[in-house]
């Protein structure tokens, strides 16, 4: 039983399809209107049927008022980290602090290579992500004197100017499943963003995965609670409860609150493009889950 105590966040994971052009934008605007906290998009720059995620995030932030936007997760191998850091700061400034940085090490190397990117082994990709995070944090440290320097095997800075300073302390959320990535997450990240659908054992796997993160955080002298546990989830809204995240909104709320108590999950991102599901998630699941969690935490 691990509840890290963070406020709960509810968000969407919308397919960034390029056709129709405004499909994802319409759903993001809906998410903003119905009061969700997050709008996230997957990032596969080698996939021509999708919009470029960075462009879409920036456009969506411009068309919304309250919601925070994030990649889920951005493909670091095809996004130059120093440029990404300034772009992130820029989007955070333009949006008044409504941006968080979801990052991944890359997985589809054929696609990355087809786009002119480097093919990396899994191990090197983890190292590269750690270096990328280092580069990004250096650029964001706008108040330190002197040019930013970083001498990595994959990424380097040779006295680059620092800044601009983001509008808020942008969180870096990492998509991770394997021990080395989980350790990196515990050491360096502000959030952990896996997809429930990729966990072979379902939610039960979270215990072991959390443990890796907690240990790495502690080893790095960090509070495990400094790493927010996010989760991409999917399910079905039906009149009668069928199973986990399969039933009426109240059933969902009980299931999600259970994840908060059991595994410390504090952000639930719904992978569903159906506007009706997005509305139900915001209007019924989110408040009911918050109520259950608040009640339990105040006991």
């Amino acid at each position: 039983m691990t509840d890290y105590g963070q406020d709960l966040l509810f968000g969407t994971f919308v397919t960034p399809t390029a056709q129709p052009a405004r499909y994802a934008v319409d759903r993001a605007v809906l998410a903003d209107r119905v009061g969700l906290d997050l709008v996230t998009f997957q990032d596969h720059p080698y996939q021509p049927s999708f919009h470029d995620t960075w462009t879409l995030l920036s456009y969506v932030a411009s068309r919304t008022e309250r919601v925070t936007v994030a990649g889920n997760v951005l493909n670091l191998p095809l996004r130059q980290p120093a440029v990404l850091a300034r772009a992130a700061a820029s989007l955070d400034l333009l949006s008044g602090g409504r941006f968080e940085l979801g990052l991944g090490a890359g997985a589809f190397w054929d696609g990355v290579e087809a786009m002119g990117g480097r093919r990396l082994s899994t191990g090197h990709a983890v190292d590269a992500l750690a270096e990328g995070i280092g580069v990004i944090r250096e650029i964001w440290t706008a108040d330190r004197r002197g040019g930013a320097r970083f001498d990595g095997d994959h990424y380097r800075l040779h006295g680059a100017k620092r800044g601009p300073l983001p509008a808020h302390d942008i969180g870096i959320w990492v998509g991770a499943y394997k021990p080395r990535m989980l350790a990196l997450t515990g050491r360096l990240a502000d959030g952990w963003l896996p997809s429930l659908g990729y966990l072979p054992g379902g939610t039960a796997d979270l215990t072991d995965l959390n443990k890796h993160i907690d240990e790495a955080a502690a080893e790095a002298g960090r509070d495990p609670a400094a790493v927010r546990r996010l989760l991409n989830v999917g399910g079905r809204f039906t009149a009668q409860a069928g199973g986990f995240l399969d039933g009426p909104p109240q059933r969902w709320a009980e299931d999600l609150a259970g994840l908060t108590f059991e595994y410390g999950t504090s952000a639930f991102i719904l992978a569903d493009d159906d506007p009706a599901a997005i509305e139900l998630f915001a209007a019924e699941v989110a408040p009911a889950t918050r109520e259950l969690v608040a009640a339990e935490r105040s006991r």
Partner: peptide
């Protein structure tokens, strides 16, 4: 000028402006 922190990232700015 992506190396120039006195400027916003141009692509991000263009995408934002497109929305406005």
């Amino acid at each position: 000028h992506p190396y120039q922190p006195a400027f916003l990232d141009t692509w991000t700015l263009m995408s934002w402006v497109a929305g406005r």
